[in-house]
C-alpha cells in the first residue's frame, strides 16, 4: 500500500495543503478530513500543492468536487498548484482546468488570492 500524507501551512487567511504520495480510494478520506477541518474553521481560501503527489485516482478527484461548492459559496476558492505532469494529465482529461484554477506554484496561487481580497 502506498502512503499518503497531508501537511498544512497557514498564511493569514489562506491555508495551503501539501499532499504527498498516492491519493486514491484508500487514502482520500484522510484528505477529506483535512479539508473538512478547514471548512469547520471557516477557512475558505485553500491552496492544494501537488508537488509531492505521485498518483491521483478518480476518487481522489472527487474530493475537490465535494468541497468546492461550499467554499465558493463563502467567497473562497480551492486553487491547485505545482502539479506534476502526470497528475495534471488526469485533471486535464476529466476537464478540471475549466472548473479550477491550476497554477504553476504556490506563490502564484497566494498572489491570486491576494489580488482578489475576500468580500466577507
Amino acid at each position: 500500500m502506498n502512503g499518503f500524507e497531508v501537511t498544512r501551512r497557514d498564511h493569514q487567511e489562506i491555508s495551503t495543503l501539501f499532499i504527498k504520495g498516492h491519493l486514491d480510494a484508500h487514502t482520500y478520506p484522510r484528505f477529506e478530513t483535512e479539508l473538512q477541518k478547514l471548512i469547520d474553521e471557516k477557512r475558505y481560501k485553500i491552496i492544494v500543492d501537488f508537488r509531492d503527489l505521485s498518483y491521483i485516482s478518480s476518487a481522489g478527484l472527487g474530493v475537490f468536487m465535494g468541497f468546492i461548492e461550499t467554499v465558493r459559496d463563502h467567497s473562497g476558492d480551492i486553487k491547485l498548484c505545482t502539479m506534476p505532469p502526470k497528475v495534471f494529465k488526469v485533471f486535464d482529461l476529466v476537464g478540471f482546468p475549466s472548473l479550477y484554477e491550476i497554477l504553476s506554484d504556490d506563490q502564484e496561487a497566494l498572489k491570486r488570492f491576494e489580488n482578489r481580497p475576500s468580500e466577507t
Partner: peptide, 16 residues
C-alpha cells in the same frame, strides 16, 4: 474536449 459528467450543472459542461 469535454469535462466529466456531474462536475458542472450545465453551462460550463455544454461549452466544453
Amino acid at each position: 474536449d469535454g469535462i466529466g459528467l456531474g462536475l458542472d450543472p450545465g453551462p460550463i459542461f455544454r461549452k466544453s
